[in-house]
Design a protein around this nucleic acid. Sequence first.
DNA 1: GCATGCTGTAACATTGCCGTCACACCTTGT
DNA 2: ACAAGGTGTGACGGCAATGTTACAGCATGC
Lengths: 229, 229
Amino acid sequence: MGASILVVEDESAIQELIALNLSQAGHESLLAADAQEALDRVRESLPDLILIDWMLPGMSGIDLVRRLRANERTQNVPIIMLTARADEVDKLMGLESGADDYITKPFSIRELNARIKAVLRRRAPQMTEDPVRFKDLLLDPGTHRVSVRGDEISLGPTEFKLLHFFMTHPERVYSRTQILDHVWGDHVFIEERTVDVHIRRLRAALEPSNTAELLQTVRGSGYRLTALP
Amino acid sequence: MGASILVVEDESAIQELIALNLSQAGHESLLAADAQEALDRVRESLPDLILIDWMLPGMSGIDLVRRLRANERTQNVPIIMLTARADEVDKLMGLESGADDYITKPFSIRELNARIKAVLRRRAPQMTEDPVRFKDLLLDPGTHRVSVRGDEISLGPTEFKLLHFFMTHPERVYSRTQILDHVWGDHVFIEERTVDVHIRRLRAALEPSNTAELLQTVRGSGYRLTALP
DNA sequence: GCATGCTGTAACATTGCCGTCACACCTTGT
DNA sequence: ACAAGGTGTGACGGCAATGTTACAGCATGC
């Protein structure tokens, strides 16, 4: 814990309420009263999460979300919307505009905390250029090599990305759809069963090093890379 | 509608006022005059919502909330605080102690009803991606694993969802129809007795860890996951 | 032009789970 | 004690999910 959270809210009462609550939960809160101030704040330092009120003076909360999503720097920062209007339409618009979650006012502090915790928890680890280690496996995106205790393993491009994804997201189960999104990229239109085939090819490549059993299938859910039996 | 609501209030005038109002709204009201009585009541049957007066003889309302939140059995029951003191501080303390909402006295019946309705609407404990604990059981949807004190339990997809449902809705009896709706999804056309079979399979899987008795049969009503003997 | 390596898809094989039934057992009321 | 309904239990056929193999297309390099 101990995340930095930007609160964009014009009503000072609610702002203080949230800020106090966040600090008690061990978070650092940054405050902004309108969209422009929020954008300025974000330019200085990137928060781990942004809470945005739907109704803001000047630029609306939704427009702010769009702006944040359009900016490469901020497009991956999770956003929670606060809205007084409980209509389904609003919810949809909020999510479509790019928010990760929304809460309708009046909301309880418990609920707010739960949402924050949930959003922060699924703050996904990114696939960077750094070498990744998992059990005996060593994967280096820079040199594009995979090895087990020094013995190199030869993988095709797709198998490499697939293993890279699993090694940066170990122990977690991912559906075929999620795997397609992360490894192939969103919006690709590929048969889900194709994932199975690549899992098989990856397993075959890992087989000689006896590390294939790390890649488990979870019937009905997807696949997972695990260190446990 | 038709929720059971526990009212913890020492002033009998207000108590009766609320009870009358609740019954007119189609709710069943349970009454308790102090914190201890409230705890006793809760032990018998779990209400859908608890109204707690801030000022109570003996243990204060806030302490009661803390006690309820500390108890595994009651930690997810929504709570609304009634308080005569309108200070922001009080609001904060009430919410931080674990209440879902608060109402300052004097309050209008209309407002009370609105709050109750709102809280009940968002009451349903959701089956999220968060790990769930219940007694010795630990279920993690993210990794799709269930364990008892470290020992993993292997479950099929349906048994997993079934256990997940019960663990997020403990201490409450669900009919076979309700279980089908929640676990299989609405509008499925499946024999109700099928639920029995899956309950049996789940029990068999829990048997080795001596946690099978947590899954109780309530003859004529359905099933329930409970910590009580 | 040919060989090579990789990919996505389809088709077939296999596994494991699911839903249902039949019957045994238990509970309740008369 | 009996009947009647509710629940436990074991077995079984079916089928959906997954494993596996084969193949055609498409780059790339020689």
